[in-house]
């Protein structure tokens, strides 16, 4: 038994099941996510880890016929309750996507757009942009061309811009859906470093198909297989002493 502490999960799912029509995406998943921790969701492709991630800030709403049962609690509130405005929710639970997807606008506008819609004070925005870009380790590279198109940046820079865009909303949770899968190794290692510094301020959930990456960046790991959660726990324990045979098979490369 873990000692009872004063640490409550920022976000948790309780017996969460996501279905597309009749097809089950994930089934009966219960995980808790804590402040200042990076949680990695790993598993072979098609195991439902991205589906699960998108259900944490209701990005699944845009998929037709999606059906959700079970609960997702964010700071104690059920995010699928009809009284919740999903747009407000997403301001607190930001997301970084698999492929860099900057708006076809300037670098400045990319970051400023969200805060403007959320009615952040106008005078605050230039500082906010600098802070976000600094946190995303992009400031020095783009400070002289803030008003040029974001599409002129390299893939790795675009992805860091997307991270800056997400953290400019001052979210408390950051969801990352295979953020490095479209990037080269150098860009990948920069983003991994970035995750380490960001975790001081945010609850981070990252989906990755790369086990080494999960081992490097995460504190807690959850292993998904065929839409089910096989096991979750401290990353060190999962990678050294997995409890389940499926986890061990996956980690030793027997399948996946």
């Amino acid at each position: 038994m873990l000692p009872v502490t004063n640490v409550f999960p920022k976000l948790l799912t309780d017996k969460l099941t996501v279905k597309y029509g009749e097809k089950v995406g994930v089934e009966n998943i219960s995980i808790k996510f804590f402040d200042s921790k990076v949680t990695a969701l790993i598993g072979p492709s098609g195991c439902g880890k991205s589906t699960y991630l998108r259900s944490l800030n209701r990005m699944n709403d845009f998929i037709p016929n999606v059906k959700i049962t079970g609960k997702v609690l964010f700071s104690g509130q059920d995010i699928y309750d009809s009284s919740i405005d999903p747009a407000l929710l997403r301001r607190h639970i930001g997301m970084v996507f698999q492929k860099p997807n900057p708006f076809p606008k300037t670098i400045f506008e990319n970051i400023a757009w969200g805060p403007k819609r959320a009615k952040f004070a106008k005078t605050e925005i230039p500082q906010l942009i600098e802070d976000s870009l600094r946190q995303a380790a992009l400031w020095d590279e783009v400070k002289d061309r803030l008003h040029t198109s974001a599409l002129g940046l390299s893939g790795g820079q675009q992805q860091r811009l997307c991270i800056a865009r997400a953290i400019a909303m001052r979210p408390s949770v950051l969801l990352m859906d295979e953020p490095c899968s479209a990037l080269d190794p150098i860009a990948t290692s920069r983003i991994e470093d970035l995750i380490q510094t960001l975790k001081e301020k945010y609850t981070i959930v990252i989906v990755t198909h790369n086990m080494q990456q999960a081992a490097r960046v995460s504190d807690i790991t959850a292993f998904f297989l065929n839409g089910k959660l096989v096991e979750s726990g401290e990353t060190k324990q999962i990678f050294t002493l997995p409890k389940e045979i499926e986890t061990e098979n996956y980690l030793t490369g027997k399948f996946g």
């Binding site: 409550f8 104690g76 509130q77 009284s83």
Partner: peptide, 16 residues
Amino acid sequence: LENTQSFALKRSLSSP
């Protein structure tokens, strides 16, 4: 499981 920090997430006439 209640978190001490609270967020305004409810729909209202001013929510997006």
